Computed example of a mutant assay.
Amino acid sequence: MRVIIAGGGTGGHLFPGIALAESLMGKYPEAQIIFVGTPKGLEAKVIPKIGYELSFISIQGFVGKSFSEKAKSLKSLLKSMFESKNIINSFAPDIVFGVGGYASFPVVLAAFLKKIPTIILEQNTVPGLANKLLGKIASAVAITYPETIEYFPREKTYLTGTPIRRKILEGNKEKAKKLFDIEEGRITILILGGSLGARKINKAMTEGLSYLLPLKNRIQIIHQTGEADYNWVSNEYKNLSFRATVLPFIYDMVEAYSVADLVISRAGASTVAELTAIGKASILIPYPYAAYNHQEMNARRLLSRGACELILDRELNGEVLVKKINKILNKPEIMKEMEMASLAFGKPYAGEKIIEIAESLLRRKR
């Protein structure tokens, strides 16, 4: 099987694509897979590290841009259509997956024009512009939430969930203890600001350290800061002598999850899918500028099931964050209930369901 996975830009689009690739390789070890994205997207850093082939196209963002930037985006679309056509002609895929983001649009469209089966993945309740348009021409649409079906043709839309990397379910705690300098017997808090970090979360956590002093000897922290905030966040932990492993980006997220007792994070679709697949208690802080406010929608779904605590970005500060942490850590039964509710919400086999849809499309084509 020859497969193109197109899209990315952010972890919310890229990581479901990586998860899908892993599921494909698990079922078809001889499969050939290439990713298509942009040089500026997260895929440019991540994909080479995990060993998949990566091709670039010139597409630029359109939504939320100025008039002149939109004009440049439309010009880049024409160039990207030509580039996508060349990639498809050279690689000759059996099927093309679009995982969201503007980089998926020209590749899926070029595949459609060549009558190659296509599947798009929609991780959020309200699809972005690329998927809204692609939903009209894609062979199938894989959605995460039931409400999303109203945006796509019902006859080719499937409720699958968001693919997660299989390794998320197989974290090695012994390896994690060495990687993150974990001390047995302490509660481990994992802080994620998304693939690029989140200054608001970084500031709230460091502001909250003085409120956390009574818990200092009970907890340890793994904190992904993003490149820009790494130095000053590291210094804040050192100044108050907290046991903390601070990193610009966590490449070994599987192991980080495996030792985390509580996760503090944005509420992107991939993060929510991973947290619920492994049943983690969490404090979710939705990114307020996400398209269609989808992160708050994601978080409120978990909150309604008792699977998380929620803090809106505009209400976030050190004191508010620490109150939520204390609420969970000081009552073990609350954490246990959150873990069980989180696990019940998860869909750990979304990737396998999407592969079944792909197989059906390929059989129909033959």
Rank of each mutant, 00 (worst) to 15 (best):
M1W: 06
I5Q: 06
G7A: 12
G9H: 15
T10R: 12
G12Y: 14
H13K: 13
L14A: 03
L14H: 11
G17T: 12
A19E: 13
Y28W: 13
I34W: 08
I34M: 08
V36R: 07
G37M: 07
K40Y: 13
G41M: 10
A44T: 12
V46G: 01
I47P: 07
K49G: 00
I50P: 02
I50Q: 07
E53S: 09
L54W: 06
I59N: 09
F62M: 15
E69N: 14
K70M: 14
K70V: 05
K72Y: 03
S73R: 08
L74D: 08
M81G: 01
K85S: 11
A92G: 01
P93R: 09
G98H: 13
G98M: 09
V99L: 07
G101C: 10
Y102G: 14
A103S: 15
A103M: 11
V108H: 06
L109R: 09
K114Y: 02
I119G: 06
L121K: 03
E122A: 07
E122F: 04
T125A: 15
T125P: 00
T125C: 13
N131E: 12
K132M: 14
L134A: 08
Y145S: 01
P146C: 07
E147C: 07
I149S: 12
E150C: 04
F152W: 07
T157W: 10
T160G: 09
T162H: 08
P163S: 10
P163F: 14
I164Y: 10
I164T: 10
R166A: 14
K175N: 05
A176E: 11
K177Y: 01
L179R: 13
L179W: 05
T188G: 00
L196D: 04
G197V: 11
I201A: 00
T206C: 05
G208M: 07
L209R: 08
L209E: 04
P214S: 06
I219A: 03
I219Y: 08
I221P: 09
T225C: 03
G226Y: 11
S234I: 01
N235P: 00
F242H: 04
F242L: 02
R243G: 00
T245Q: 01
T245A: 03
L247W: 00
L247D: 03
I250M: 13
I250V: 15
D252C: 00
M253V: 13
V254G: 03
Y257Q: 01
S258R: 11
L262M: 01
S265I: 11
R266S: 03
R266D: 04
G268P: 04
T271P: 05
V272C: 06
L275W: 12
T276N: 10
A277K: 07
I278C: 08
K280C: 13
A281V: 12
S282A: 15
I283R: 09
Q295H: 13
E296P: 00
N298A: 11
R301I: 13
L302D: 12
L302S: 07
L303W: 12
C308Q: 01
I311F: 08
L316G: 02
G318D: 06
G318K: 11
V320S: 04
K324A: 13
I328F: 03
I328L: 03
I328V: 14
N330C: 11
K331M: 05
K336L: 10
E339Q: 15
E339W: 05
S342K: 06
A344D: 15
K347H: 12
K347G: 01
K353R: 15
I354L: 05
E359G: 00
S360G: 15
R366A: 11
